[in-house]
Amino acid sequence: MTVVGWWRQAVTTRRMVLWLWAAVALAQSPAGQQGRQFYLGHCAHCHGPDGEGGRGINLTTGQYRLSRTDDDLLRVIQTGVPGTEMPPSRLPVADIRLLVTWVRSLGAAGALEKATGDAAAGALVYRNTGCARCHSIQVNGGQAKGGSLGPPLDSIGLRRSLKFLRDALVTPDAYIAREYVGTTAQTKAGQLFRGLRLNEDDYSLQLRDADERLHSFRKSSLAEYQRLDSSLMPSYGKLSPTDLNNLIAYLSSLRAANK
């Protein structure tokens, strides 16, 4: 079952009717149509065409980490969320108000985005599959544990929708954040290096390999170097459906608020 399918079933019929009524009323108004157009143009590639989530959070829950009022939403859409992929918008205030209304209509269902799996079992999958080789998780303000080739996952449940988490595990090549692009470097002597591209200019290239070793190369000393289209993370599509669901539930439960 898709995530969207899941929440559609999970909401009560009464809520559904209310939501549909509100959405239909809004969708029919010219302002609603315009808000929807702006949403499709500026937001849908991250939050999904129906707000179901993607790189951006699921907007059908009507719950936001940083916002309560419409004014909060207006501000967050204007400024973005610094340190995350949520970008600032330079649209005029009037158009952002239309967006706020549309975002509210998406959230009117008040769907709870709740993973179907068992988070505790997922934590075991996480440990046994070796995710910590590349990812760190900081628990209760303690020391972050794990590798640094991939992004820290402390607040991944807040930042990303369930749909995105599944995609990240099954088809990691489909989306790679700018800061986590991999690169290869082959020296003229034939030695091959592969790792996270830390920095690059026209004359040199810096990377960190899977063993957390740092390398810096003069490009003139390399036979070849290449930015990778594929993720440094392997696909976990081979995990059993249960393990995968449990793992997603575990990731979704990681909601460190300070991140």
């Binding site: 330079r90 005029p92 009037a94 158009d95």
Partner: peptide, 16 residues
């Protein structure tokens, strides 16, 4: 494109 009423001293872009 976006709507863009003219207000002195404000962005007047008509889009993004």
């Amino acid at each position: 494109t976006a709507t863009s009423p003219y207000r002195p001293g404000d962005y007047f872009l008509g889009g993004e």
